[in-house]
C-alpha cells in the first residue's frame, strides 16, 4: 500500500493500455510514454503490463505504508526517496514511512513511478489503465488526489542492492532534435506537394492543447488539394489529422476511436513516447520513413527492453 501525499488531477494509474475494444469505442488509454513504463516494470521484475502511476503534475509526493520496491523513469527530474536521490531511470528499496518526492522535470513532461508487484487496482475491460476522458478504470476512474491509498501486488523475489540500480534510457533519448518518424497515411496524396513539403520542413510548435487525447500543433496552414468527402473511420494513437484549420493534431492514448478528419501521416509506434514527453512550446519536426524502418525502430526498443530485463534480474539478490 502507498499513500498519495501531493498530486494533481492529471496523475493517474496507467498500464500498457487496452486492446481489442476499439470497436466498442473504448480507447486504448495506457501510458503516454510506453518505453518508460516498460523500463520501470523491467527494473523491478514486474510482469510487462503491471500498472504504475503516470505523473504529469508536479511536485508529486507519496508515502510507503509497507516495504516495497520503487522505480522512477521518464522525464528528467530529481526524485528523492527518504531524502536520498534516486538514480535517473533508477529503482530502490523503500521502507514503511519513506517518502518519495519528485520535482518538476527539467526536460520532458511525464514521469512513471512503478512499484514491485504493480498498482493492484481492480481490472476493468481487461486492464488497469485510467481513461480520464470517459471516467473509468484505474483508481475510481479518476486522477489521483491527496489521501488516496493504492494497493500493491506481489513483488518479485529478491532484494535490490543498497543505493539502488539504474538503467540506460531507451534508444533515441539523447537527441531531442531528431524528427518524429511518420508513415504516410490515407490522405497523404490529397495534400499538395507544397503542403507535404511544408509538413516535413517546418518546426511545429506544441500548443497548450496537448493532453492524453491528443496534441494540437501550430504552424503554417496545410492545404488539402483534393477535397473529397471522408466518412468516419477507425483511428489509432499517432494518427496526424489535419482539420479544416490546416494545423495538425496528433491523436494519442485517449483519442476517440473513430474520426473523420483527413489523415496526412501516422507517427510510428517507436516514436510515440516523444509526444507523451512534449511540453507546450516545444518544436517538433516530422520525417517520412518506410515500414521497414518503422519496424526496425520498434525492434530496437524491444531488444533494449529484453536486455534491461535480464540485466535487472542479475541485480536482484535473494
Amino acid at each position: 500500500m502507498i499513500e498519495i501525499l501531493s498530486s494533481g488531477a492529471l496523475n493517474s494509474v496507467q498500464d500498457r493500455g487496452r486492446r481489442g475494444l476499439l470497436s466498442s469505442g473504448v480507447s486504448r488509454s495506457g501510458a503516454m510514454d510506453l518505453p518508460a513504463l516498460d523500463a520501470a516494470n523491467a527494473l523491478l521484475g514486474n510482469e510487462p503490463n503491471a500498472a504504475a502511476v503516470e505523473v504529469a503534475t508536479f511536485p508529486f509526493r507519496l508515502r510507503f505504508v509497507v516495504v516495497a520496491t520503487v522505480a522512477v523513469t521518464g522525464a528528467t527530474a530529481e526524485a528523492r526517496l527518504a531524502g536520498r536521490r534516486l538514480m535517473p531511470w533508477g529503482a530502490a528499496e523503500a521502507r514503511p514511512g519513506d517518502e518519495l518526492t519528485i520535482d518538476p522535470p527539467t526536460a520532458g513532461a511525464r514521469i512513471y513511478v512503478a512499484f514491485g508487484g504493480g498498482v493492484d487496482v481492480p481490472q476493468l475491460l481487461g486492464g488497469r489503465a485510467t481513461d480520464l476522458k470517459s471516467g473509468y478504470g484505474g483508481h475510481e476512474g479518476r486522477g489521483l488526489k491527496r489521501g488516496d491509498r493504492l494497493p500493491l501486488g506481489r513483488r518479485a523475489t529478491g532484494r535490490l542492492p543498497d543505493g539502488g540500480i539504474g538503467a540506460l534510457p531507451p534508444p533515441g533519448r539523447s537527441d531531442p532534435d531528431r524528427p518524429l518518424r511518420v508513415l504516410p497515411a490515407a490522405e497523404w496524396l490529397d495534400f499538395s506537394d507544397a503542403a507535404r513539403q511544408r509538413f516535413l520542413s517546418v518546426g511545429w510548435r506544441v500548443t497548450a492543447e496537448a493532453d492524453r487525447q491528443g496534441c494540437r500543433l501550430d504552424g503554417p496552414e496545410l492545404v488539402r488539394e483534393r477535397r473529397r468527402e471522408l466518412l468516419s473511420h477507425g483511428i489509432v494513437p499517432g494518427t496526424v489529422q489535419v482539420p479544416p484549420s490546416g494545423r495538425p493534431i496528433v491523436q494519442l492514448a485517449e483519442a476517440n476511436t473513430c474520426g473523420g478528419y483527413p489523415k496526412i501521416a501516422t507517427v510510428i509506434e517507436a516514436d510515440l513516447w516523444r509526444l507523451g514527453q512534449a511540453m507546450p512550446g516545444d518544436a517538433l519536426r516530422f520525417a517520412v520513413v518506410d515500414r521497414a524502418e518503422a519496424l526496425a525502430a520498434l525492434r530496437e526498443t524491444a531488444d533494449w527492453l529484453d536486455r534491461l530485463r535480464s540485466a535487472a534480474a542479475l541485480y536482484r539478490v535473494s
Binding site: A185, V236, T239, E269
Partner: peptide
C-alpha cells in the same frame, strides 16, 4: 497504412 501496426 495507419502507422506501424494498423491498416485502413
Amino acid at each position: 497504412d495507419a502507422g506501424t501496426g494498423a491498416l485502413l
